[in-house]
Design a binder for these strands. Structure first.
Length: 395
RNA sequence: CCAGGGGUGGCGGAGUGGACAAACGCACCUGGCUGUAAACCAGGCGCCCUCGUGGCUGCGCAGGUUCGAAUCCUGCCCCCUGGA
């Protein structure tokens, strides 16, 4: 029921196109999973996204766990039935929340921090941003729910049990996502724990027919750890691989991490770069051999007023667009760009009209999916680097 | 005309002798956002500059008291409520 086939490899780079088959449909790679954390693409229906070319969606275990909502979904027979859709789905394991509700929240940093993790700089971080709601143990993780303060405990086994109940086609092993500010020692400790958790996840998972699992490579920004992790995760019986965790202090570090990691992974299995999705990072990662992404940026930027365009990121909340009668992106073939001006959308966003967010979400999702279509076509025609050069001129 | 209340930065609205260029909210401007605690967050928002525990102007208008006034006093102007 599941398979992954590589159709063509780029001649100049490690980019490749492939087909990932699941019981709910096929995914042409490289591709991006549209994020629908709580079972909704904020501002757009699954059907519409699918019409724009979305072939797989990413939903989150933690958000169906902290409120025990997975029990309801289980009674429905899984997410497909609960959401009443028939598209391929993947679920994240909850491992990202170890970072986002823990260190990331405490220090206000993302996965790619543009800062140095020395003491002196940590002091200058906005540590008042939040407290650490996460305690990691060998057995699992204690979260203090950010929603109601309740203590909840998630283990590798429980994450897999929940993901089996949710019944997404592709699930992820429960890992610990570390911070760019974590020390070498801590990153190593967390990586080794993630490795032990990986085998516990596989044991719990068994061999179901309707789901496959991706293991996650950790190791932060450290070459020896990344290589060790890639070798170890590759030695286990996963269907594919996620590359997760801290990807370093700058965008260049992402390339380094992928360059260390990917050559050590079975080339016939799909590789998913967790959470990444800015335009330049997409090109650089595909060039290193990444097949799948997922990212909140298209929808989040839309809610925050930013648009994708061939001229780069546009902040449509800016008053300078109120006189602009042209579409967001004159080269974009989406209905929003066919019909609406930047002026109108800017006006809606400034007035906090929800319709502005809906229009922009539709455009951003369409735009990013179209970019992946162009990338696949380019690889097919051996023009990947040409396309990269052309697009990244403005990104 | 009488009685009472009130006039604070673009707007709303605190403050009622010193730490007030004036809380807070809105609006406005600029940034940020990468496995979603995010329709969010951060910064700026009188004028000037060498951008600082800097200078100037400033709380209806004019004057006064005081070391010091948005805050107290006097006069004037305007607004609101009730009465004739």
């Amino acid at each position: 029921m599941f398979s992954f086939n590589i159709l063509k490899k780029d001649k100049e780079t490690k980019a490749r196109i492939g087909i990932l088959r699941t019981p709910h449909g096929i995914i042409h790679t490289p591709n991006i999973a549209i994020v629908a954390t709580k079972g909704s693409i904020r501002g757009l229906s699954f059907d519409k996204a699918n019409r724009f070319g979305a072939e797989i969606f990413m939903i989150n275990t933690f958000h169906f766990f902290h409120n025990n909502r997975y029990e309801i979904v289980k009674k429905f027979g899984g997410l497909h039935k609960f959401l009443n859709i028939n598209y391929p789905l993947m679920t994240d394991s909850g491992g990202f929340q170890i970072f986002s509700l823990g260190f990331g929240m405490e220090h206000g940093v993302g996965k790619v921090a543009d800062i140095f993790p020395e003491e002196s700089n940590i002091k200058n971080l906005p540590i008042s941003k939040g407290r650490n709601l996460v305690k990691v143990y060998e057995e699992g993780v204690e979260f203090i729910s950010p929603y109601n303060g309740r203590k909840i405990f998630l283990s590798p086994e429980l994450s897999i049990k929940i993901q089996k109940a949710l019944r997404a086609d592709i699930i992820f092993a429960f890992d610990e996502c570390t911070s760019p500010l974590s020390s070498y020692e801590y990153t190593k400790e967390a990586m080794q724990r993630t490795h032990r958790w990986a085998t516990r996840c596989l044991d719990e998972f068994g061999k179901p027919e309707n789901q496959v699992m991706f293991g996650i490579v950790q190791g932060g920004e450290y070459e020896d750890l990344r290589k060790e992790s890639a070798k170890y995760i590759n030695s286990l019986n996963f269907f594919g691989y996620g590359i997760g965790g801290s990807l370093g202090k700058s965008k260049k570090d992402i390339i380094k991490v992928l360059n260390w990691t990917i050559p050590l992974l079975d080339e016939n299995k799909p590789r998913h770069l967790l959470g990444i999705g800015e335009v330049d990072d997409i090109f650089n990662s595909i060039e290193q051999g990444i097949d799948l992404f997922d990212c909140v940026i298209p929808t989040r930027w839309a809610r925050h007023g930013a648009a994708f365009s061939y001229k780069g990121r546009l902040n449509l909340k800016s008053s300078k667009y109120l006189n602009d009668k042209r579409p967001i992106d004159p080269k974009c073939k989406c209905n929003i760009c066919k019909k609406y001006s930047k002026a109108y959308i800017s006006h809606l966003l400034k007035e906090k009209e929800i319709f502005g967010i809906i229009l922009l979400t539709e455009h951003n999702i369409f735009w990013i999916l179209n970019l992946f279509k162009e990338i696949r076509q380019a690889i097919k025609e051996n023009k990947f680097l040409d396309l990269k050069k052309r697009i990244l001129k403005y990104w």
